[in-house]
Design a protein around this nucleic acid. Sequence first.
DNA 1: CCCTGATTCGC
DNA 2: GCGAATCAGG
Length: 207
Amino acid sequence: MSWTEERVETLKKMWSEGQSASQIAKELGGVTRNAVIGKVHRLGLSNRNGGGGTAEKAKPAEVEVPEKPAVKAEAPRPKPVREAPVAAEPVEEVKAEPVAEAEPEPVEAPVSPARRQIIPAGQPLPPQPSANEISPEALASVREVEKKARRLTLMELTERTCKWPIGDPATEDFWFCGLPVQAGKPYCEAHVGVAFQPMSSRRDRRR
DNA sequence: CCCTGATTCGC
DNA sequence: GCGAATCAGG
């Protein structure tokens, strides 16, 4: 597959949304995450903003000293004053521009630290079921399984780890199940059981 | 082990 | 330009 304009646009869109290279690769198909990352770099849109994923290594402080302007006896070229865009507001989102890449444009902008935060866009958290809507048997079973939970943190979750939350999110006493998920489902077998109950079996349940 | 992006370098 | 291999990290 090649990087058609359409595919590149999908890439740009997803990348700016904070999607990971592998996710983008899946979406596009026919390419690996390496290809995506490579393309991202070639397009020059390496740094994404937002605290979503792992975007470390952001040390803008280091700027090579440009050495002196030298003794150029040349004509002081007027240089097309590009006008400093002191818009004061990081407008951002320059999409919808079919432009085929203008020029490098100095990455260093007098931009203020007021950046838009991008929402992780992860899987929506599963709803904590009300204990009184789960059958005693199922509940007991789940409790048992939860003893074997891997106790993963939010960041450790993947497509193959059960995302069932356990404990109180407001305390340290909180983690995610993390056991292997049931094919296609976001939870492990036990949690799929309590998460997807037929309406018929959860009617009129009292404690 | 699962995953992430960054870089290199032969093609 | 492309992307597999590799690297460095979580």
